[in-house]
């Protein structure tokens, strides 16, 4: 089974472009009925059934992101936002098209990736740090700050399974904000935690905005789009519907949801 694939290249060039996306397509081969397992695969081949259905998710995206832009990506559930982010992060391969990433890229698809409930908070911090590309020495240096910021100092040597979910998120967030890269990819990290935590998130985003950090943020919150983004892209059914001023995109998004609710 040969599947044609697009390209994703990482470069380090001294110009003002952060990401270029050209003619990007992505589809998933979703298994139909019961096509898992060897037996079914052999049956399907004998009967000439493909055993999967092609689900087209992204249908020809073109855009370019400059350094220092804070880009919000919005759209309905299933419009392809998260898939786009995962392709930019290099987790999924594009089906067709070209992506050029200029600079180091740090993705947060989820907070606390690699967290293991059976390990202590301390061990999880080092593990999570390694996934973000920090060495042991770098982690040692920022170790106390992480716990200070998470306000969980007394729990460092407890197993993670004894943390509440809110505590886990606070710890994960506290590690995540230390990550340094030219480009940050954030997927809905705002959507968790209580009001105090939301406040911390907002402060973090504001600091990114003020530092002119290049950020791509997938979100459902039009307030965040209006407040932090310098530009927004509205996705619908795998295509770009609108690309431009955050205000305009936010209104268009709200209008679109209004229409879809009337149906």
């Amino acid at each position: 089974m040969k599947r044609p694939i697009g390209t994703r290249t990482e470069v380090l060039e001294d110009n003002d472009t952060a990401i270029i996306v050209k003619n990007l397509y992505k589809s998933f081969n979703l298994p139909t009925e019961q096509s898992f397992g060897l037996k079914q695969a052999i049956f399907n081949r004998l009967r000439g059934i493909k055993g999967y259905k092609e689900q087209k998710v992204l249908k020809g995206l073109n855009f370019e992101i400059k350094k220092g832009e804070f880009v919000g990506i919005v759209g309905r559930n299933g419009s392809g936002k998260s898939t786009l982010l995962k392709i930019l992060a290099g987790i999924y391969y594009p089906k067709k098209g070209e992506i050029i990433v200029n600079g180091t890229l740090v993705p947060f698809i989820e907070l606390g990736v690699g967290f293991n409930p059976e390990l202590t908070g301390r061990e999880n911090v080092y593990m999570n740090g390694a996934l973000l590309g920090f060495s042991n020495e770098e982690m040692n240096k920022m170790y106390d700050d992480i716990w200070e910021f998470a306000e969980l100092k007394d729990f460092q040597d407890q197993k993670l399974k004894n943390y509440s979910s809110g505590m886990q998120v606070r710890l994960a967030f506290s590690i995540a904000i230390r990550a340094k890269g030219d480009i940050l990819l954030l997927d809905e990290v705002l959507a968790v935690g209580d009001a105090a935590f939301q406040q911390k998130c907002n402060d973090y985003f504001r600091s990114l905005h003020d530092k002119k950090q290049t950020v791509i943020l997938v979100t459902h919150s039009m307030d965040s789009v209006r407040e932090f983004c310098t530009r927004a892209i509205l996705l619908e059914d795998g295509k770009i519907l609108l690309d431009g001023e955050p205000d305009k995109v936010a209104s268009a998004y709200n209008k679109m949801l209004g229409i879809s609710q009337d149906k």
């Binding site: 293991n116 059976e118 390990l119 080092y126 593990m127 390694a130 590309g133 920090f134 060495s135």
Partner: peptide
């Protein structure tokens, strides 16, 4: 490279710890 080495080390450490966890 450095990043991959760190990752390899941490993953191995975790695997080894988890194997005999709770015994």
């Amino acid at each position: 490279n450095k990043k991959n080495r760190i990752l390899l080390k941490e993953l191995t450490k975790t695997d080894f710890k988890l194997r005999y966890q709770g015994s």
